[in-house]
Design a protein around this nucleic acid. Structure first.
Length: 328
DNA sequence: GACCAGGCCAGCG
DNA sequence: CGCTGGCATGGT
């Protein structure tokens, strides 16, 4: 029993035709979800704990609260999930007949959707993701939530909400240095400070206001929000599906498969122009497909076209009463 | 010990 | 503009 308020548990199901939960939550876009050994996807988003499981066209859910707070206002759980997972927004990507790689990638990833992440959590998450493997980044984000968020007890598991910007803004870089965050350490409080200052004037930002905050962050050196991280924030939390984050993998596939060379900015402009309003989906298909082909042994992703029953190595909660004996 | 991780940034030409 | 090292740290 932990010192958390007990929440009403809600359960139900929503219709999700053409949707794939495993690809959506196991692709590496989210950091606070994991697939448990019991087969359920468990995670926390918008201050609410969810357990999800897909059975054909229906998505079964358990949630820690009846209403979920978002920047569009509070939503009932089923409406929230439809919005958060874009259940009814199946992407339609036009691909030319001779682009066999993209056709194969699109086919493999049928059912994948971009999640509508919380803007601030997304900002900090991708600032931390720089030059670090997925699993390590997950651990660091969970550490932040455990240190500064508040706990929610759900089905004998403890989850932690992501802290408000002003909480992280008041931390010193040395705190994160001591947690071995490396040179990401100072970027966390600095980014939080810029967000926090704006939030003092705007109490509950709309999506457009969040977009302005994100855009402003891109111009502030030291925040860790450069071209790639900025595009991740746009794509994963700002509802900008035309954004293309260019990392080392995208750089390689652009060169290998399309003969496009040059700087990150050049490849980014090429991909965004090519894909138009759906460039994000087009790029994500290629990214996951290419990475799966070239680094199938990476242990930080759940998606595998060969075997998708591997539990996530890092879960966003702790079992209550499962005290580990290994601690000194 | 190399070499790389879903890069960013200051300091150059 | 575009390019180059340096940056901490953990994993293979």
């Amino acid at each position: 029993m932990i010192g958390a308020a007990r929440n009403a548990e809600v359960q139900g199901e929503v219709c999700a035709p053409g949707f794939n939960l495993g690809y959506t939550l196991g692709s590496g876009q989210v950091f606070r979800w994991g697939r448990d050994a019991d087969g359920w996807w468990k995670g926390i988003a918008y201050n609410t704990v969810f357990h999800l499981r897909q059975d054909g066209d229906s998505l079964h859910y358990l949630a820690s609260s009846t209403r979920v707070p978002t920047y569009l206002g509070p939503m009932p759980v089923s409406a929230f999930l439809e919005w958060y997972l874009r259940l009814k927004a199946s992407p339609r990507i036009r691909v030319s007949r001779d682009d066999t790689r993209l056709r194969a990638a699109r086919q493999k990833l049928r059912g994948f959707r971009f999640v509508r992440q919380e803007p601030f959590e997304c900002i900090i998450s991708y600032v931390l993701s720089v030059q670090a493997h997925m699993n390590l980044t997950k651990q660091r984000i969970n550490f932040i939530a455990k240190s500064f968020g508040h706990p929610i007890s759900f089905r004998n598991e403890a989850y932690w909400t992501f802290p408000q910007p002003h909480i992280l803004a008041s931390q010193a870089g040395i705190f994160f240095r001591r947690q071995r965050f490396g040179w990401r350490s100072e970027r966390v409080p600095l980014s939080a400070q810029h967000v926090s200052v704006i939030l003092k004037k705007i109490e509950c930002p709309t999506l457009d206001q969040w977009r302005s905050i994100g855009d402003e962050l891109k111009g502030v050196p030291g925040t860790g929000v450069g071209l790639k991280v900025g595009k991740c924030i746009d794509l994963f939390s700002m509802d900008r599906l035309n954004a293309v984050p260019v990392d080392t993998w995208v750089l390689k596939l652009a060169k290998e498969w399309y003969g496009v060379k040059g700087s990150d900015a050049k490849v980014c402009a090429w991909a965004e122009n090519r894909g138009g309003s759906q460039a994000g989906y087009m790029n994500e298909y290629l990214f996951i497909y290419y990475r799966e082909l070239n680094a199938p042994t990476l242990h930080d992703q759940v998606i595998s076209f060969c075997a998708s029953d591997i539990p996530s190595p890092e879960l966003p909660f702790e079992r209550v009463g499962a005290q580990d004996q290994n601690q000194i």
